[in-house]
Computed example of a mutant assay.
Amino acid sequence: MSFSDNLKLIRQERNISQEKLAEIVGVSRQAVSKWEQGSGYPEMEKLLILSKELNVSLDYLMLSEIRSSENNKPLSNNLILPTGKITIKSYDGKSIVNCYKVLASSVMYKARNDEPKYWLIGINSGALWGEKSTVLGWYADEENIKKEMDKIADAINKGIPVYELKYAVKVKNKMLRVKIDED
């Protein structure tokens, strides 16, 4: 999806008219219409206002493939959900992360049959020098991580403050590798 598609989809999901969005951003309704038709882009200042007022990251607005709910599209290497805060307990129960961003990605190594192929990462701003990332969960296949992302996105959009992982697999560390725990 393009910026124009993303903007239109987000605006409609939030039940905001083009007129209202134009008023919020400080432009004409025709400018918003032009952006949604793909025949122009807002200035950086306006993009920042859009990001803030729609409660989404700039990545979410600008990336070409962001919607995990479109099951017919492949999962991009890094899928970014809308900004907002949600608290998620990690797969091992050792961390509770107040996430403002959640990323789904394939693992960085060639996974074997008994290893998870995807991981979910929660990002918060709790670190002294910037963002801190925590592995929230491990996933055996793309279908389950897409389902998880859909559920998290839905929870964020509904303003639900806490989410419990539903599709993550149990894992165990073995010889510096993460293995799916079949027990």
Results as ranks from 00 to 15, higher is better:
G126Y: 08
M108S: 14
V135S: 04
I66E: 02
I160S: 10
M1R: 08
R177P: 13
A31S: 15
L120G: 02
K110N: 13
K147D: 02
L48H: 13
A111V: 01
L79M: 10
S51D: 04
V169W: 08
V25S: 01
V32N: 08
I86D: 05
L50M: 13
Y118D: 01
P74I: 00
N71I: 08
R11N: 11
I160M: 07
A104N: 03
R14M: 10
W129L: 12
E164T: 15
P82R: 14
C99S: 04
K52L: 09
L128P: 05
P74R: 00
P116F: 04
S17P: 11
W35T: 01
D92I: 00
Q30T: 12
C99F: 03
Q37V: 00
K89T: 13
L176D: 15
K85S: 10
A22T: 08
D154F: 14
G126P: 05
P116K: 00
N55Q: 10
E143H: 13
L79I: 01
S51T: 05
I88H: 01
I66G: 11
Y91A: 03
N6F: 06
S133I: 03
I160L: 11
E131G: 06
E53C: 10
P74V: 00
I121D: 01
I24W: 13
W35M: 04
D154V: 01
V25D: 05
M175G: 13
D114N: 15
G137W: 00
V171W: 09
G126R: 03
A140I: 03
S33L: 07
A140H: 12
Y91H: 12
E148Q: 06
D5F: 12
V27D: 05
E131N: 12
W138S: 06
Y109C: 03
E43Y: 14
S39V: 07
Q12P: 12
I16W: 14
N98L: 06
R112P: 09
E143P: 02
E65K: 07
L9Y: 15
N72R: 07
M62I: 14
I121V: 12
Y100P: 02
L81D: 07
G126D: 08
W119V: 04
L136H: 00
E142N: 03
L47T: 09
R67N: 11
K147E: 02
S68K: 02
N15W: 06
V171R: 02
S28T: 14
N157I: 01
C99H: 05
Y167W: 10
T83A: 10
C99E: 06
S4T: 05
W119A: 01
N15H: 13
R14E: 09
S28M: 05
V97W: 02
D150H: 08
L75D: 03
R11D: 08
L81N: 04
S2N: 14
K46F: 06
L9R: 15
N72G: 04
M108N: 14
K101C: 11
I180C: 06
F3Y: 13
V32P: 11
Q30Y: 07
S95M: 05
E115L: 02
W119L: 13
K46M: 09
A127P: 10
Y60P: 00
D183E: 15
K94W: 03
N78T: 08
I96S: 13
D59F: 10
Y139A: 06
G38C: 09
K179A: 03
S95I: 00
